[in-house]
Amino acid sequence: MDKKKLRNDIILILAVLIAALAAWGVIALTQRPGREVLVEIKGSVTASYPLDRDLRIDIVTEDGHVNTLVIEGGRARIEAADCPDKLCVKQRAISKAGESIICLPHKLVIRISGESGVDGTV
């Protein structure tokens, strides 16, 4: 491999890496405590629950799929789902404004909204 290409490769890869890490940093720094848990199905909010009250509820989508949402100790997570990959169950519990758990097969998003009406979508 010639030297110029190697140098270009390294510059390219570092640029992408730095951009990703910077975005990560911005996300981490701008996080604020959340207030409400919003349930979005296909992009529209269908329900919201206060984050400070423990709750266990089955969310049923239009086509009959079920995700079990659990709010416990100020953190929300998906405890069970009838999707094949269960990635939403594996995602860690969320508590900060703007954080979300997404279940791709069911087109379901659980997200945390921020304080005083301003929601966490930065």
Binding site: L17, K42, S44, S100, I102, K107, V109
Partner: peptide, 23 residues
């Protein structure tokens, strides 16, 4: 594509993690 299909931009939060994994 996920932003389009899900109708939410929430999923953009995953981009940094995915970019690093892509590298």
């Amino acid at each position: 594509m996920a932003v389009v299909l899900l109708g939410t931009d929430q999923i953009l939060w995953w981009l940094p993690a995915l970019a690093v994994s892509g590298i």
